[in-house]
Each structure stands twice: as structure tokens, then as C-alpha cells.
């Protein structure tokens, strides 16, 4: 009984908001003005949920850092942790395949890393966790889609069949029993339609 989980984990996976994708250097791929607005809307939405967030874990890429900077303003006092595990990449070769995107060599490196991110961050609460937790992960579309497939035990090759808007919220619930529920996938209904993008 001492080893049995007692608490529920609420995982909020946030896709970074719109960014300038012209440059090839990550440091120059900063948020657009609309992207900054989107992040404000996402921050407002998260703050309005009325839950006490335990931490924000974010990808170390520029667009995720900048999205986190804005979201954090709406969630004062919530600790931020940066991780390379959540950086964007090619998680697994998609099925059906896509003809215009073939990063074969990247699957080996990115796939192992993104799988490590899944195993590291997505699991039932530890036995010592007494209270339910609410954690935010600010990262990327491919990473979120792969995590959703893995968490639901759906074929991970299907990740590319899903589509996520910028600044959208994906909410996974992990019960002490290990049961997983996807409560929302890519919710952006809190944004006006003219501010919704998918870049």
C-alpha cells in the first residue's frame, strides 16, 4: 500500500504560439505579434481555470520559452523548468507516410528523445504524492501528438493524423490506477476565430 499511487495528475500540454519560421536559427524564430497575443489568451485561459498549478515545464526552444514567458505572467509564483527533452522533432515515421517530409535520419535521434520525454513526464503520480497535481508542459505539435498517442496506447505512428492549433490546450488526466483520459485535445475555443493559426 505504501507504493500505491493516491493522487491524480492533470497534465496540460500547450502548443507554443505563432512564430517567425523564416529563419533557420532557433534563436531568431521568435513569436510573431499574433503569437504573443495568442500566448496571452492561453495564459488567461489557464489562469481562469481556478486551479493551483504546480509547475511549468517547457521546451528549451525559443518559441516555447517566449510562450512560457507570457503564460507565466498570468500564473505568478509557478516554478518554471526548461528541458531539452521536449524540443520539437520527428517522433516516429508517420503512417500513412507523407511524401514532402522525410526526415529519416532524425527518427533515430528524435524518436528516442521524445520517447524518453514521454517516459520521464507522463506517468501516474508517485506514491508519495498526497494531493492531485496540475502541471503545464509548453512544447510542440509533434511532441504533443506523440505523447497523446502513447498515453492513450494508440498506435504512435498515427500522430500526424491529429492537428493542433497554436496556443491550444491538451488536457490529460492520469488516475492513480494508471487509467488515462484525454479531457481536451488542442482546445483553442477560448480564442477568437481570427486569432487561430496552425503554423
Amino acid at each position: 500500500d505504501n507504493l500505491r499511487a493516491k493522487a491524480t495528475r492533470h497534465i496540460f500540454l500547450i502548443r507554443h504560439s505563432q512564430y517567425n519560421s523564416e529563419s533557420s536559427l532557433d534563436k531568431d524564430r521568435t513569436l510573431t505579434e499574433l503569437g504573443r497575443e495568442q500566448a496571452e489568451l492561453t495564459g488567461c485561459r489557464l489562469a481562469s481555470l481556478g486551479v493551483k498549478f504546480d509547475k511549468i515545464v517547457h521546451s528549451s526552444m525559443t518559441r516555447a520559452i517566449e510562450t512560457t514567458d507570457i503564460i507565466s505572467k498570468h500564473l505568478p509564483g509557478v516554478n518554471r523548468i526548461s528541458t531539452d527533452l521536449l524540443r520539437e522533432g520527428a517522433p516516429i515515421e508517420p503512417d500513412p507516410p507523407v511524401s514532402d517530409w522525410k526526415p529519416e535520419a532524425r527518427y533515430y535521434e528524435d524518436g528516442a528523445r521524445i520517447e524518453a520525454a514521454f517516459r520521464n513526464f507522463i506517468h501516474r503520480a508517485d506514491a508519495k504524492q498526497e494531493e492531485d497535481s496540475y502541471e503545464i508542459f509548453v512544447c510542440h505539435a509533434n511532441v504533443i501528438r506523440y505523447i497523446v498517442c502513447r498515453a492513450l496506447q494508440f498506435p504512435p505512428e498515427g500522430w500526424l493524423r491529429m492537428s493542433l492549433n497554436n496556443g491550444s490546450i491538451t488536457h490529460l488526466v492520469i488516475r492513480p490506477s494508471g487509467r488515462v483520459a484525454l479531457r481536451t485535445l488542442g482546445d483553442s475555443g477560448f480564442m477568437p476565430p481570427d486569432k487561430i493559426t496552425r503554423t
Binding site: 520517447e115 520521464n120 504512435p156 494508471g178 487509467r179
Partner: peptide, 20 residues
């Protein structure tokens, strides 16, 4: 291929491998 894809739920899904 990571993870089961048979449609049968694995309740020990997060206990099979050590966390990295």
C-alpha cells in the same frame, strides 16, 4: 514499435521501464 497497439489496455504501462 513502442507500446502495445492491440487495443487491450495495459494497466502497468508506466511501470515497465525505468524513467530516464
Amino acid at each position: 514499435r513502442p507500446g502495445p497497439t492491440s487495443g487491450v489496455w495495459d494497466s502497468n504501462w508506466d511501470k515497465r521501464e525505468p524513467r530516464s
